[in-house]
Amino acid sequence: MNLPDFDYYIPASLQDACALLAEKGPGAKVLAGGTDLLNKMKHELMAPEVLISLKKLDQLTSIDYVSGKGVVIGSMATHNAISNSSLLQEKYLSVCEAAQHMANNQVRNVGTIGGNIVNAVPSADLPPIFIALGALLTLVSTNGERVMPLEEFFTGPGKTHLAPDELLTGIVIPDNSFTGSTYIKFGLRRSGALAVVGVAVAVEMDRNICKDARIALGAVAPVPMRAKKAEAMMIGNAITDELLEQVGVCASTECNPISDIRGSEEYRRDMVRVFTKRALRKAINNGHV
C-alpha cells in the first residue's frame, strides 16, 4: 500500500484554507487527522490531487463554553481531547464516553470530531450523541459562515450538505434542559470494532414523567437518524419497563439497516430494540447528560 501523488498545502489561517479550497475545487480534500482519508487513499478508494492540511489552525482544536451559544467544540479536536475535556466531562459526560469508545487509542489520538462527521460513515460513533443533544454545525467558506443542525447535514453514506469550498469549523451543543443522555455502542468485540448498532438518547425527566426525548440511531440507516415515532411514545408519559420495550420495538421498525459482514438487517433491527430500551433506561437513571 502506498499513497498516490498529491499536492500538499498547510494554510496558516482559516481564510487561507477557505481560499485554497475554493481555488483548488473538487479535486482537493481537507486533511484533519487522516485516519480515514489516508487509509482510503492507500486503498485507492480516493485519489485527491490536493490535500489541504488544517494542522496549523490551532483555533479549531479548542473546546469552550460560549455563553449564549453553548459548548463549542472545534472541528480539529481529537477524540481523546474530547474524551479528556474537563468542560465536557462536567457538562456532557455522555459525549466523552462516546468518544472514548471510538476505534482504538491510536486512532483516538489523531482522529478528529470534524473528520468523523464530514466522512459521514453511517456507523460513526459521535454523530448520534450530538444529534440527540441537538448539536449545530458551523460551516465556513469564502462566502461566509452558515449554521446547520447536524441532524440535517447527512445525505447518504459518505455524503453531506458540505459544499466543496466549505470547511466544518465547529460543533455547538446549545444549552438545553435534558436531564440525562447516553450513547451505547454495540460492536463485535470490546475495542477496535465498528458499531453494528449505535444508540444515543437524551431525555428530560420530571420525576417519572418524560417531558422530552430524542433518540438517534447509528449504523442502521444510510445516515444517522432520529427515531421520531419512538420519541413521541415517550413524551408526556410515565416510564415503565413495558413502555421502554414498546419504544424499542417502535425504533426497530423505524430504522432501515442493511445486511453486511458485521450483521444482518434482522439482527440490527432487534439490536435497535434492545439498545434503545437499554439506553433510555440508562439515560433516565444516569443523572447526567
Partner: peptide
C-alpha cells in the same frame, strides 16, 4: 468467537485487515 476470513460472492477478500478480522483484544 470472533475470527473468520470472509469473501464476497466473487471470491474477493472482505476483511483482510485487523479492524474487520476481529482478533480478540486484551479487553476480551
Amino acid at each position: 468467537i470472533w475470527e473468520e476470513v470472509l469473501f464476497d460472492k466473487n471470491g474477493k477478500l472482505m476483511n483482510g485487515n485487523l479492524a474487520e478480522y476481529r482478533l480478540p483484544t486484551a479487553l476480551d
